[in-house]
Amino acid sequence: MGQFIQFAINGLMSGAIYALIAVGIVSVFKATKVVNFAHGYLIMFGAYFYFTFAVIIPGQEWAPAWLASWQPGWMVEMRQGLNMFSPLGAVLDWAANVPRIIFGLIGAVLCNALLGMLIERSLMRPLMGQSVFAMIMVTVGLISILSGAASLIWTADAAFVPHIAPNTPIRFEVFGTMVFLFGADIVNMIIALLIFGGIVAMVKFTKSGVAIRATAEDQSTAYSMGISVPKIFSRAWILASATGAVAGAILATRNGISPSLGLFGFSVLAIVLMGGLDSYVGCFIAAMSVGVLEAMTQWKLGGEWAEIVPYVAVLVVIIFRPHGLMGQKEVERI
């Protein structure tokens, strides 16, 4: 039972990250009807940007010292006399990193947003109104372009990237068993859920959200009603790559940075399809269930089997519910 709760909580935490990544794919799909096969590689770029702004730039000689490690007098005083593994020590370690974490996150979000806009402008917009197949294949071509570009730009070995929140171990008791978590994981989950919720609320309640939904229903009608569809396209891509940057930063702190981060996108793609492509709620349910299922598989069958959980899950769901858990079935008029 104790093990079960521990793994279930781990699963929910990775589920939240899945949901954060999924939100990018769903938003682009809703606005443009294109499923971005290269979303994982956008996330990889986000991770590398975070690495660049939080590690490489602060490490340069010309960068101010406080950026690399912020050590105001009061913090030095507090540190004195602390033993090695005290929770306060971990918090202080984190506090010293705060400037570069903020710098890294802002840099990653801005650069990735710019990258998303660039992709939309140069590759997606010329295909607007063309077959969806062509657009999807363009994102497939983007996989190679992004993955090649990343290994060309970031040749240095990816070192440690700072955690977004203090990584203190937290222990507490649930139903009489000890559960063991890391502080950073909890904060990551909260960030992921807040961003997810924020985007859903935006699409539901704001004017540009209505414009996105109208575009999702019918692009040409939306265009003729005065909605600037190209602008919606741009915004969706910027939104997806900006959220992708945050997801990338989180993943970088959890699993380290490597070109294989891009492959992560495919499991999220499977999750999005399971959820039903255009449904935020469906994707959230799918993300959480896959997260928990993965954790359980890891527990019972071993880590490597967890790799294929999203793929098996999506096949099962597609066979029984061809349009995903909550997806809209498109009625074909004959």
């Binding site: 363009v138 497939v140 071509g141 372009i145 993955s147 090649g148 570009a149 060309l152």
Partner: peptide, 11 residues
Amino acid sequence: VQEIVFGLLLV
């Protein structure tokens, strides 16, 4: 570079 050119070719 080969990877990038491959992608560019397709695109």
